[in-house]
Amino acid sequence: MVNLIWLLLLAGGGVAAVINGNVAVVTQAAFTAATDAVQIAFELVGLMALWLGLLKIAEDAGLVALLARAVHPLMRRLFPSIPRHHPALGAILMNLTASLLGLGNAATPFGLKAMQEMQRLNPNPDEASEAMCTFLALNTSCITLIPATVIGLRAAAGSVNPAEIVGPTILATTCGTVAAIIADQFLRRYYRWRG
C-alpha cells in the first residue's frame, strides 16, 4: 500500500505539473523537500540525545519497569505479544503520556525507543509486527488534551474564546482512538488468517 501511495503522489504530481504547465516547480519542490528532510532529522539529534539519556537513567533506576508493571493489565490486552516487564511497554507508555500532554518533542524520542524495543521482539525484522501496528494506531490517533498551537493561532486571530475548541477536539480524537483500537483487532485477525 505504501508503495502505491508513494508512486501516486509522485506520478500524480508529475502529470498535474505538465497539465498546469509548471514543470519547473516540481524540481524546486523536490529539492527543497529533500533538504528539509535532512534538516528535520538533524534537529531531532539533540532532543533525541536528551530524552534517550534521561530514559536510560530511568531504566537503570528501575523506574521504567515500575511504570510498565503499573499499567500491565491494560497493556496486556493491547499488546499481547510483548512479554511482561519488557522495556518496550515503559517506552510506549512514556510516548503516549508525552503526546497526551502535548509534549511533541519528548514524544518522538520515546516513540522511537519503543520501536527499537519492539523490533527486538519482531520475528520478521523487515515487516511491521502486530505490536508496532497497534502502537502506531494509538500514537497517530492519540488524544492531546490541549492543542496549544491551534489555541495560539486562534488567539492571534482575535478569537473571543480561543480555547472553546478543546471540548469538541477531545470528543473527536477519542472517536478516532476508539476506531483505531477496534480496527486494529479486526485487521490483526484478518492478516493472521490471510497469513
Partner: peptide, 23 residues
C-alpha cells in the same frame, strides 16, 4: 536520527511534489 533520513527524504519529496504541482 541519521537512520530516518532516507525514509524522510522519500516521503517529503513525494508530498512536496504532490502539493507544488497542483495535484
Amino acid at each position: 536520527a541519521v537512520k530516518i533520513i532516507p525514509f524522510l527524504v522519500g516521503m517529503l519529496v513525494a508530498i512536496g511534489v504532490f502539493r507544488a504541482s497542483g495535484a
